[in-house]
C-alpha cells in the first residue's frame, strides 16, 4: 500500500538558491501558481462578455464577489471596504488551493503548515499594524477588558495577550489540519481499494466517494472560516471590540 503521506512530499521542480536560502520552485509553488492562474481564469472567463444578464459562469464569478463583499460588510463594516480586494484574494486563493488539491495526483499547498502559518501570520501582523496605526497606544487597551478590577490586570493582561497571540496558530492549524486529515483519510481508504479486490474493494471506494463529497464541503468551509476570521480580527483592530 502506498504511503498516505507521500502526497504531501515536496519535490523540487526548478532549483533556485539565493546564497544560503533555498528558494527552489517546488510542486507546492507550482500549484500556488496554478491556483493563481485558475482563479484569474475563472473570474476573467466569467467576466469576458460582461453581460448585464449573466450566464452561469458569470453568475458564479459575481456570486463569489457578492459573497465576500457581504462578509466584509457584515463583519468589518464600512471601513473594511479598502481591505476587500485583499480578503477576496485570500478567500479565492485558499478556496481554489483546496479545491485543486482534490484533483488526483495534484498537490494541496494548504495542507502544509508553513503555508497556512505564513498566511495566518501575515493576516495577524497586518491586522495588528492596522490596529496600532489606527489607535496608537489606545490599541493596547484591547488587552484589558472594560469593567475589570485593576487588581486582576496582572493576571488578565497576559492571558489576553496570549489569547491574541494564539490567533495565527489556531488559524493556521485549523486549515492545515483539516486539509491534511481529509487528504490522508482519502488516501488511506483509497489504498484499501485495490488490495481488497473486486469483492471487498467497493466498500472503501464508496467511502472515498463520500469522503470526496465531504472534502468539497471542507474545502469551501475552511476557506470560509479562514476568511471570516480574518474579517473578525480586522473588525477588532478597527473598532477595538
Amino acid at each position: 500500500m502506498a504511503n498516505p503521506l507521500h502526497q504531501f512530499e515536496i519535490q523540487v521542480v526548478a532549483p533556485i538558491h539565493f546564497g544560503d536560502v533555498n528558494a527552489s520552485l517546488t510542486n507546492s509553488g507550482v500549484f500556488m501558481l496554478i491556483t493563481v492562474a485558475a482563479v484569474t481564469l475563472f473570474l476573467m472567463f466569467g467576466m469576458r462578455n460582461r453581460r448585464l444578464v449573466p450566464g452561469r459562469w458569470q453568475s458564479m464569478a459575481e456570486l463569489s464577489y457578492e459573497f465576500i463583499a457581504g462578509m466584509v460588510r457584515d463583519n468589518v463594516g464600512n471601513e473594511g471596504r479598502r481591505y476587500f480586494p485583499f480578503i477576496f484574494s485570500l478567500f479565492m486563493f485558499i478556496l481554489f488551493g483546496n479545491l485543486i488539491g482534490l484533483v488526483p495526483y495534484s498537490f494541496t499547498f494548504t495542507s502544509h503548515i508553513i503555508v497556512t502559518f505564513a498566511m495566518a501570520m501575515f493576516v495577524f501582523l497586518g491586522v495588528t499594524v492596522i490596529g496600532i496605526v489606527r489607535h496608537r497606544l489606545k490599541f493596547f487597551s484591547y488587552f484589558l477588558p472594560k469593567g475589570v478590577p485593576l487588581v486582576m490586570a496582572p493576571l488578565l493582561i497576559p492571558i489576553e495577550i496570549m489569547s491574541y497571540l494564539s490567533r495565527p496558530i489556531s488559524l493556521s492549524i485549523r486549515l492545515f489540519a483539516n486539509m491534511m486529515a481529509g487528504h490522508t483519510m482519502m488516501k488511506v481508504f483509497a489504498g484499501f481499494v485495490v488490495p481488497l479486490g473486486i469483492l471487498g474493494g467497493w466498500a472503501p471506494l464508496s467511502i472515498d466517494v463520500a469522503l470526496t463529497a465531504f472534502e468539497f464541503l471542507v474545502a469551501f468551509l475552511q476557506a470560509y472560516v479562514f476568511t471570516i476570521l480574518t474579517c473578525i480580527y480586522l473588525h477588532d483592530a478597527i473598532h477595538l471590540h
Binding site: A69, G70, R73, R81, R82, Y83, I130, F220, L221, L229
Partner: peptide
C-alpha cells in the same frame, strides 16, 4: 456560525447605501 453552516449574507451589495468598487483598496493589511 462560522464552522457550522456558511451563512451567506442576505443583503445584496447593491442594496447598500454606498457602492463597493473593488479597486479602491489602496493599501493592504
Amino acid at each position: 456560525e462560522a464552522e457550522g453552516a456558511p451563512a451567506p449574507s442576505d443583503g445584496e451589495p447593491e442594496e447598500q447605501d454606498d457602492d463597493w468598487p473593488g479597486g479602491t483598496g489602496s493599501d493592504r493589511p
